[in-house]
Structure formats: structure tokens, C-alpha cells
């Protein structure tokens, strides 16, 4: 399988504090990789390095053959092809739902307003929110907002999707509606890198699991290996704590 995202020896510092140390891994086309680990382990930072929302000082990340760290890379263009979903949804509060889905299509991809809105409506239908197209984000529940955020990313026809703790800010009863959309996406063959604590989702959907601790990638293995017998003691501890419930 060819590699979609390839992360090679990435190091990142905030001042003197090293947040990422020699992180290397890759995500193949069509693969679903879950990144987990305790808070402060650097998993969100790592995933934000993939589309250069966070800069890194050493190493390289290649997305679909394009080097993210290369100063000559047209980052906006690269980012427009990589979908991202954030912990706090980050819908644009001054725009309606359908405008949220259309604005980057028209301003970045140059699609016509009609085409962009038609595509937006189609995607809203897919995540079950067509009826809310003309509301503002503030009128929707957290789960609904996150489904809109996923649809907004999909509207750009991304080559892969990054999820940064997409369910961490949600009330428990809303988590599943978001995970269902993500599961469906994975089944359709989308390449996905997901930072999440949802181990049930990882078990059902992931191909591989990456476990991070204190800026290092400690474990990078198939999901069966990870949930069967993780090699590192740190991952075993983490799993025993998180899987008790």
C-alpha cells in the first residue's frame, strides 16, 4: 500500500521544552490509525504538525508526496486537501450551517456558490442534518456541530482526514452520533488519523493504533496486537485504566 502520510523523526520544542521526540510513523492510503495516550503526551501536537498548523523544528512529514516542512510548499493548498476536525468543532459562528460548508469551497477551490451549496446540502443530508442548513452553529447541539464540522471538511474532497479528539468536548449521549459518522467514513475507505480516547471506536474501526507518552511514539502496531498484548508497560497501564469502564 502506498503511503499517504509519512512522519519521519519529527522533533518539536516549545522553547526549551521538547514536546515531540523522534516521532516516526506512516499512514497508508485507506488506512485508519488511532493515536492515543495520556494528556500532555503530544498526540494533538503531532496531528497538528501533519497539516502544519503547528510548526516543527526537526524531521519531516510527507503528505501525498509533498513535504510539509519545506518552506517552498504552498501550505494553504496542501491544507485544502487535508480535512481536519477539531475538539471544539470550530464552526464559524457568524455563518449559517450551509455557508460554513460552502465558504472554503468558493473562496479556496473557486467553485460557484450554487455548486458549493448543493454539495454542502448533500453532505448535510449524509450526516443527517439537512433540516438545519439555514440555522447558525449556536443553535445546534455539540454532537450536531461536530457532524457539521466533519461535513465541512468533506466538502473540500480531502485526500485524508485528521481528527483531533473529536468527541472529547461532547456530552456522553452525543458521542455515538459522531463516531457513527466517522465509522461510516472509514468503511468507505477514507484515510484517517484520529486522536481519540474512544477505545471502542479504535477496536471496531482502526487498522493500527499508535500510543504516545511524553512526546514519544511508544507503541505503533496493529489494533489486535495493541489490545491483545501491548509491549510497553506504559501502554498496559494506560489500557488498564481506560478499559475498566
Amino acid at each position: 500500500m502506498s503511503s499517504m502520510i509519512s512522519i519521519n523523526n519529527v522533533n518539536k520544542w516549545y522553547g526549551d521544552f521538547q514536546v515531540l521526540t523522534d516521532c516516526s510513523t506512516s499512514v497508508s492510503k485507506g488506512e485508519v490509525v488511532v493515536v492515543c495516550g495520556p494528556s500532555g503526551s503530544g498526540k494533538s501536537t503531532l496531528i497538528k504538525c501533519v497539516n502544519a498548523l503547528e510548526p516543527f523544528q526537526k524531521g519531516d512529514i510527507i503528505v501525498d508526496g509533498i513535504s510539509v516542512g519545506d518552506p517552498k510548499t504552498n501550505l494553504p493548498k496542501l491544507r485544502s486537501r487535508v480535512g481536519m476536525v477539531f475538539q471544539h468543532f470550530e464552526l464559524f459562528p457568524h455563518l449559517t450551517i450551509v455557508e460554513n460548508l460552502a465558504i472554503a469551497q468558493t473562496k479556496v477551490l473557486g467553485r460557484s456558490k450554487e455548486e458549493a451549496e448543493a454539495k454542502g446540502i448533500k453532505l448535510l443530508e449524509r450526516v443527517g442534518l439537512k433540516a438545519h442548513a439555514h440555522k447558525h452553529p449556536g443553535q445546534l447541539s455539540g454532537g450536531q456541530q461536530q457532524r457539521v464540522a466533519i461535513a465541512r471538511a468533506l466538502a473540500m474532497d480531502p485526500i485524508c482526514m485528521l481528527f483531533d479528539e473529536p468527541t472529547s468536548a461532547l456530552d456522553p449521549e452525543m458521542i455515538n452520533e459522531v463516531l457513527d459518522v466517522m465509522t461510516e467514513l472509514a468503511k468507505e475507505g477514507m484515510t484517517m488519523m484520529c486522536v481519540t480516547h474512544e477505545m471502542g471506536f479504535a477496536r471496531r474501526v482502526a487498522d493500527r493504533v499508535i500510543f504516545m507518552d511524553r512526546g514519544h511514539i511508544v507503541e505503533d502496531c496493529s489494533k489486535d496486537d495493541f489490545f491483545g498484548t501491548p509491549r510497553s508497560e506504559r501502554a498496559q497501564q494506560f489500557l488498564s485504566k481506560i478499559l475498566q469502564h
Partner: peptide, 9 residues
């Protein structure tokens, strides 16, 4: 970040 992730400069 959301704006930039969508390709806005």
C-alpha cells in the same frame, strides 16, 4: 486554525 485547515491563507 479552522480557517487555515480549510486552505485559507
Amino acid at each position: 486554525q479552522a480557517a487555515q485547515s480549510l486552505g485559507f491563507g
